[in-house]
Design a protein around this nucleic acid. Sequence first.
RNA 1: GCGAGCGUGGUGAAAUUGGUAGACACGCUAGACUUAGGAUCUAGUGCCUCGCGGUGUGAGGGUUCGAGUCCCUCCGCUCGCACCA
Length: 806
Amino acid sequence: MSSYNFTEIEQKWQKYWDENRTFKVTEDPSYPKEKRMYVLDMFPYPSGAGLHVGHPEGYTATDMYCRYLRMNGYNVLHPMGFDSFGLPAENYAIKTGTHPEKTTMENIENFRRQIKSLGFCYDWDREVSTHTSEYYRWTQWIFLQLYKKGLAYEAETPINWCPECKTGLANEEVKDGGCDRCGTPVTRKNLRQWMFQITEYGDSLLEGLNDINWTESVKAMQNNWIGRSEGANVVFKLENGQGQIEVYTTRPDTLFGATYMVLSPEHKLVDKITTQEFKDAVENYKTQAALKSDLERTDLAKGKTGVFTGAYAINPVNGDKIPVWISDYILISYGTGAIMAVPAHDERDWEFAKTFDLPIKQVVSEDGHIKELTEVYPAKDGVAVNSGKFDGMKTADVIPAIIKWLEEEGIGHKSVNYKLRDWVFSRQRYWGEPIPLVHCPSCGTVPVPESELPLELPEVTSYEPSGTGESPLANIDEWVNCSCPKCGGAAKRETNTMPQWAGSCWYYLRYIDPKNTESFCSKEKEEYWMPVGLYVGGAEHAVLHLLYARFWHHVLHDLGLVSTREPFHRLINQGMILGEGGIKMSKSLGNVINPDDVINEYGADSMRLYEMFMGPLEVTKPWATSGISGVFRFLNRVWNMANREVSEDEPTKEQLKSLHKTIKKLTNDTSKLEFNTGIAQMMIFVNENYGDEKVNRAIFEPFIKLLAPYAPHIAEEIWQILGHKDIIANEKWPTYVEEYTVDDEVTIVVQVNGKLRAKMQMPADITKEEMEKAAFDNENVKSHTDGKHIVKVVAVPGKLVNIVVK
RNA sequence: GCGAGCGUGGUGAAAUUGGUAGACACGCUAGACUUAGGAUCUAGUGCCUCGCGGUGUGAGGGUUCGAGUCCCUCCGCUCGCACCA
């Protein structure tokens, strides 16, 4: 008997699938809509480090699922590609002078080799890489569509700046005040930027969440990130006719309790209203605030700071004269950058008022009675007091009543705000898509004509970012200087590039029609496949990629370019794989597992099985090298069975039961992506049948089909050993006969007062009465019931008898 | 602080509608085969106890004939957001 030579087997079948284009897929109209499935993996950034064990986790899951679907008669689109623009290759270029394209192509080669070595059923003819000009031609084209729709605009605003990466960052790319990529504390910098008006789609992105089957946590994160709130804008006139301050509040019911106002230090009215007496103090405070990093400004532990401007405003509801302060706890980017402070009912205002000894006036109470407030009372379900004609009304009723009154008086209106900020879309770096716009002194900003796309990245001599806010492209005069597409006069190209997110915003559409030179994706093919039926990837993209891609897709939908509102119907996040001992895998700790090593030692099939056997797909779990030996032994046992003499006998009843229970379990678990329990059931099957001297064809062949999506190489080899000419990947998934799966005899449990006292083997179709009788006849049961009063007997057919005694 | 999720053996984990807690696997123990074993096979393995039995799913309470599962309170951990008015 030959031993299980996984290396030879795996190379043989990978070569076969590749050469025969086994997994090539076409838009075959004979498949009805419900038998088409688009299963998508988040494509990797091809880093120099190669694949780690976390990558193949999601890829293995989708591969098993796709192979299962194929065997169940589905036409399955399952592509792979590379998110190949990005900073590491560029940073490497700065260090060594190697062109990022060269490094990127080498890394892609390595990634492709590693991914293929796991035997995944991708249609490699659809592979895309975002850094190629035939791909980014369409990234640029889509950018222009958004631009023409008025969603891209140029702005000179303070943005998040990473001094290490020397580029601007979107809000979503700042984590704990640091750069998402390198952790360097983010500073503010005033820069000319291209922005996307994603806020315009706030409601659309929020509502869309209701229609998609995503994990609650990701939906919650997007929900929080968009951060919609409802309230009112209210206008406060300044005391001596100097103008007015508009504020946003979610609690217009507390308007009577506004005892002072606060402006953000950056608010444009600050200089205008500050009186001579307070000029120095205000200037000083503004300078201090500007010097602080975001992290320092938002540090909750630091306490409230601020200065009085000398100005007063008039509370429109009661005519009170209230002081106007500035403080850095008011953000210029949210609402109107100014607030009315209601210290009695807002924690932050309370703290500020206590610090500066400002008046506190209660306007909401628990029961309509005014009591001395010893702490802030922020409850939203109180009763109005000190509120003129609104006294006695419940908070929920006061809010709309006051808004109505404000609107009638023309001093306010209902309004909606979002935490979501517009998307800073330009990067001051080299290795990204050039933004296809031209700056003309007479025509202004002019888009590059679509016929001239792609606008290719020029060669540069230095990849070093200038650090002053211009990309290395700014130094290439012959590229920057161009003629205006509109008037033909001298003009300059936009030198900013797009962020890495651009390419991943639409790659799933390009897979559908990757070679199309006429459009980004043909309408017919798009309609054939979209939406993505299952999308699997890491949770780290919960608000970044997944929000941006949804935004682009919503816009493309509004432009009539795609047929679905939402791109990804179902989303699953695979859990992180930790190092041995439950600590994070990292290069510095030296506990990174390289899939190449695992495949060399145990083979790809074992690697695949172990990745899924570790636990449920979605949970974080530690890698254990010792654990892989379990699945490796299992495959060896399967191999040994396959090399036994084949029996053509009718299978026994026991064999049939073993098989059909296994088919039933695998059908259920594979379709629900519960691979860990599916693998356990296959192990049970082997344990049950391993003792047989010969292998029974009628039960072993269906079993190998069940194994095929999980361990495809060994399954193909065994299928061939069993005498088949066709490959198992194209076989039909077995079906089970319910009748065979049911046991004739079941174990009936007897409890006395809920405690287990006996087990009885009885026919499965036994009646309640027979069960009860047998229970009372049982010696051990008798010893627990003798001399006691029987209160109640509960009998569940096929399960248990519970006798309640006193 | 807010939002989401999770707490089960020495370890990774199982457990349809509430119905034998710990499937499957790792590890461990004993035995078999072997020149050898980090190979293979067999048996055992939640904890306490010689045993009978008791006890056991983060803690406490509740509902129920019966709770890992449902309800309440609390504790701990992970992730995300965090002065968003």
